[in-house]
Amino acid sequence: MLWRHGQTAWNLEQRFQGNTDIELTAEGVAQARRAARLLAALHPDAIIASDLSRAAATAAELAAVTGLPVTHYEGLRETFAGEWQGLTHTEIVARYGEQYAAWKRGEPVRRGGGELETEVADRAAPVVLTAADKLADDGVLVVVSHGGTIRTTIGRLLGLESTSWESLGGLTNCCWSVLGEGARGWRLLEHNAGTLPEPVLGDDS
């Protein structure tokens, strides 16, 4: 399970955070607390998180409910986006319009001179896989990270071409996506969910 952090002031202002260390708002803490009570019902076996404060504080709420420790990894940080960081969406489009359009088309772009999305996946996906490999076959791993990093990690685990990762869509604050291992590799079971997974009934079960 990959869980996005709670709300920050820069989220509300539509500022690109990247790896800038922005704390949760009071509402963000409340979001994490509510979600943690739900996720605890899944009986997670391990929690790993980005070491940026917004993800660490979100993970801490689940740790408080479950009693599990949290292991923090720099590799789970949000994408470094150089000169884009701290700018609003409107400012990015005005100043870096061609670069922004190329990124939206799925071209490999170093937004603001920062990381490529594939480089984010290169550092984040191995952290998730290593942690998952330490669990029993039916173990539940909770990964607390950031919207862009989660999307690229899911894309890499599913074996999708990087040009199509954008099709996964974003995650709302404190929502999560659920992956499971199937006969043909990783499967996306839930995306941008805010409620507990329900059994799949019918021909696709």
Rank of each mutant, 00 (worst) to 15 (best):
residue 65 V to F: 03
residue 66 T to G: 06
residue 67 G to N: 03
residue 68 L to Q: 00
residue 72 H to W: 05
residue 72 H to L: 13
residue 73 Y to V: 02
residue 78 E to V: 06
residue 82 G to F: 02
residue 85 Q to N: 09
residue 87 L to S: 10
residue 90 T to L: 11
residue 92 I to D: 01
residue 95 R to E: 07
residue 95 R to W: 05
residue 96 Y to C: 11
residue 96 Y to G: 11
residue 96 Y to M: 08
residue 97 G to A: 12
residue 101 A to N: 06
residue 107 E to N: 10
residue 110 R to G: 01
residue 112 G to A: 08
residue 114 G to F: 13
residue 114 G to T: 10
residue 118 T to W: 01
residue 120 V to C: 07
residue 120 V to N: 01
residue 123 R to T: 04
residue 124 A to G: 11
residue 124 A to H: 04
residue 125 A to D: 03
residue 127 V to A: 01
residue 129 L to Q: 15
residue 130 T to Y: 03
residue 131 A to E: 00
residue 132 A to N: 01
residue 134 K to E: 14
residue 137 D to A: 15
residue 138 D to F: 09
residue 138 D to P: 12
residue 140 V to A: 02
residue 140 V to W: 01
residue 141 L to I: 06
residue 141 L to C: 11
residue 141 L to A: 08
residue 143 V to F: 01
residue 147 G to T: 06
residue 148 G to F: 06
residue 150 I to S: 02
residue 151 R to G: 10
residue 153 T to D: 03
residue 154 I to N: 00
residue 156 R to D: 11
residue 157 L to V: 02
residue 160 L to P: 03
residue 166 E to R: 15
residue 167 S to V: 03
residue 168 L to Q: 07
residue 172 T to L: 13
residue 174 C to V: 11
residue 176 W to S: 04
residue 189 L to C: 14
residue 191 H to R: 09
residue 191 H to S: 13
residue 193 A to N: 09
residue 194 G to W: 11
residue 196 L to F: 14
residue 197 P to R: 06
